[in-house]
Design a binder for these strands. Structure first.
Lengths: 226, 226
DNA sequence: AGTATTTGCCGAAATTTTGATAAAATGAAA
DNA sequence: TTTCATTTTATCAAAATTTCGGCAAATACT
C-alpha cells in the first residue's frame, strides 16, 4: 500500500508529539499524507500553505485553542474538520458543531474508529463539493491577507479583501446588498447599495476567471459559488 | 588544497564528539571552514555568532533537539540546513522539510555523499535565491541584540529592535497597528497608532534596502516578508 | 545635555463613494 | 414570438474621503 500516491492530505493538530506521531503513523498506513502542527497558530499556517483535505484538531492547545482554529478556518474554507477532545461532554460537542466542525471524537479513541470517521467525512464531502476547483483556482490567505488566482498573486484593497472573505465565508448563500453592507462595512453603515455593485465589479475584474464564482442573483444581490 | 581560503563556513551540530570530528576533518579537506556545537542551545549561539553558510544538524540531541533548532533558525534566517538522523523514517523526513530543512540524510552515511549533498545545497542556494537579497541581506541576532544589513552592523534603538523582532517573528502575517502596539509595547499601551508609523519609517530608513521587506498593508498595518 | 520616543500636522497618493449613463434581464402585451 | 416598458445591474468617471509617509516640535528618559 506504500507505493500508491496518497489520496488525501490530513493536517494533524495536537500539542503532543507522541499523539501526532501515533495518528500520523496509522494514517500513513491507510494511505493518507499527513502534515502536523503543534499549536493553533502553526495549524493555520500549515492550513494555508498546504490546503489539506481534512483537519484533525485537538481542542486543548497552547496559543490558540481548537475552537478558535476551527472558527478561523471556517471563515474561508469548507475543509472538513474533525475535532478531538479529552472531555466528552455534550456541550463541547455542541459548540464544535456550531463552529462548523464536521465530526467530533472524544479521547481516548481507537485508531480504527478515527480512520473510519475520516473516511466517512471525506466521502460525504467529495460527493458534494468539487475539490479541484475551489482549491487551486482561488486561494485566500487571511493571515497574510493575500489572494491567489491560479497561483498568481492578486492585489486587493482592504474593502475588496473583506468583501471576498465575506462572500466566501457564506459560500452558496444568496446575499442581499444590505446583508453584504452589514457584513463587510461595519455597524449599520448607511451607504448606497450601488457601492456594493462597484466593489463586486472591481473584485470580478481583479479575480479574472475566478471572478465568475461571484454570481449575480437578480432581484437579491450576489452569491459566491465554487 | 590547504592554502586556499575556505569557501564556506559550516556549522556541525552533534552531541557526539567523534562524529563531529570525523565530519569536520573530512569537510576541511574539502576546503570548508568548520565550527562545531554539541547541543541545540550551543548551536543557536554559534549560529548567531558566526553566521555559517550551512548548518549540519543532528536530530537527536540533549537540551534542544534538531527539529527545534531548525525551526528556531528558520525564524530569522534562510541559511541552508541539512538534517542528520539515525532513524531513516519517512515521517521524520517529512517533518524536517516542513520545518524548513533543505536536505535530509539518514545515518549511517558516507562522507563522500555528505559532502556531495552539501555542495548541491550550497549551489542550489546561491543559484536560485538572490544571495545578496534573502540570504545575507538582513540578519538579526536576538542574543546579542545586533542587526546586520549586508553584513554591515546597523544600530537600532530598543523599540526599533523590538519592533523588527516582532515583525520578523510574525513573518508573512499582516499585522494591525493595534496588534503591533500590543506585541511590542505590551500591556495595552494606549498610544496613538501613528507611533507605529514613525518607528516603521525609522526602521526602514536604518535598514536601507532591507527595509523593503517591511510591507505596508493599506487599511491594516504592516507585514514582514522575506 | 543628548537620545529616544511620542504626538500633531500636512500633502500626496490610494481608496471609496457617489452620481450619471449604458446595458441587460424580466415580464406583460401585441 | 416579438416588441416594448420597466426594473435591475454594469460600467465609468469624477468627487470625497481615508490612509500613509515625512517633517518637526514636544515630551520622556538617562
Amino acid at each position: 500500500m506504500g507505493d500508491t500516491t496518497p489520496r488525501y492530505t490530513i493536517l494533524i493538530v495536537d500539542d503532543e508529539v507522541r499523539m501526532r506521531r501515533v495518528i500520523a503513523d496509522y494514517l500513513r498506513i491507510k494511505d493518507f499524507r499527513t502534515i502536523e502542527a503543534s499549536d493553533g497558530v502553526e495549524a493555520l499556517e500549515q492550513f494555508h500553505r498546504e490546503h489539506p483535505d481534512l483537519v484533525l484538531l485537538d481542542v486543548m492547545m497552547p496559543r490558540m485553542n481548537g475552537w478558535e482554529v476551527c472558527k478561523e478556518i471556517r471563515r474561508v474554507s469548507q475543509t472538513p474538520i474533525l475535532m478531538l477532545t479529552a472531555k466528552s461532554e455534550e456541550d463541547d460537542e455542541l459548540l464544535g458543531f456550531e463552529l462548523g466542525a464536521d465530526e467530533y471524537i472524544g479521547k481516548p479513541f481507537s485508531l480504527k474508529i478515527l480512520s473510519a470517521r475520516i473516511e466517512a467525512v471525506l466521502r460525504r464531502h467529495t460527493d458534494t463539493d468539487d475539490p479541484a476547483l475551489s482549491l487551486s483556482l482561488l486561494r485566500v490567505d487571511p493571515l497574510a491577507r493575500e489572494v491567489y488566482v491560479d497561483n498568481m498573486r492578486v492585489e486587493l484593497t482592504y474593502t475588496e479583501f473583506e468583501l471576498l472573505s465575506y462572500l466566501m465565508a457564506n459560500k452558496g448563500i444568496a446575499l442581499s446588498r444590505d446583508k453584504i453592507l452589514d457584513g463587510v462595512w461595519q455597524y449599520d453603515y448607511c451607504g448606497d447599495a450601488r457601492t456594493v455593485d462597484t466593489h463586486i465589479k472591481k473584485l470580478r475584474s481583479k479575480l479574472g476567471e475566478a471572478g465568475e464564482m461571484i454570481k449575480t442573483i437578480r432581484g437579491i444581490g450576489y452569491k459566491f459559488e465554487a
